[in-house]
Amino acid sequence: MTTPQVKAPRPNPVALLAAAAACWISAPGAQSLQDTPGLETIQIRPNVHVIFGAGGNITVHVGEDAAILVDSGSAEMADEVLAAVRAITDRPIGLIINTSADADHAGGNHALASTGIPVAGAPFGAAPYANVLAHENVLLRMADEGVLPYEDWPNETYTSRVRTMYINDDGIVVMRQTGAHSDGDSMVHFRRADVIATGDILDLHQFPVIDPARGGSIQGELAALNHLLEITIPAMPLVLKPGRTLLVPGNGYIADYAELVEYQNMITIIHDRIKDLIDKGMSLEEVQAANPTQGYRERYGSDTGPWTTGMFVEAIYNGLKNPPGIE
């Protein structure tokens, strides 16, 4: 039996034209189109886009009522974010939901909200301004720390386990998940689109930033990841079909159940290793020397920058030695 050959196709005229066009575009003096500088926008559902590069990831949900943003990026990138939103939709920004008080997630609040109007319309005589919603602890944290100016503070807060609303023909569930990354964490589930914006609870760039000084804890982080596992639906039982819940992490690429399982397993295993070392009577220095993140450190760790592997281990160590009260 001889190896069967496929009949060679004819030259593709479209490809020839494309090659010729490429030669023209590469010639000196030719103009090229550019996206919003420094940002990338990816459409993940018919009415859901994600903007990357403005600090934390920004989820944009569009529909007949308004543009809804989960997080607003850093203050420095607010103009670029606004341009990126305008490239997605001409609907005004009606609601910004902050997943935490971090400046890379909420720094663009004022610049973006001031271009919008509330979903329910501006009160008579009031200047148009979009709703900025966050857990109450975000407001308290911003007021206490003064990292972000007053204008960036949320103008609407919640404290309940969930805050629900129906906008853009979609059920939106804002879930209180405080005590994980910080004491103001929220996750946002767009139920019809089946997209969950996780905030920094899921961070595919690094180990999760568990900041005890701002109310974060390893116990809360694991509780949040286990909660996410319950509401994130994999491609199952029809595993060859694309349908599944999509996750927008605080940083990093668009994820699904598989990335979440890997991340939850990693954090649980590191937690267990550090707990075992504590149970053996080791000090923090001895735990650090034992390298309990090995197996994951090259992928998620860092020896420099604002969140090092050492800080991550220390946060878990201290959290296990002095457990916080978790809801």
Binding site: T3, P4, Q5, V6, A8, P9, P11, N12, A15, L16, A18, A19, A20, A22, C23, S26, A27
Partner: peptide
């Protein structure tokens, strides 16, 4: 250099002949 590059692009636009089933 430009001529070579453009020629390569145009050649690349023609599908390779050796294709096995």
């Amino acid at each position: 250099t430009a001529l070579t590059t453009c020629s390569a692009l145009l050649i690349a636009a023609v599908p390779a002949r050796a294709q096995v089933q």
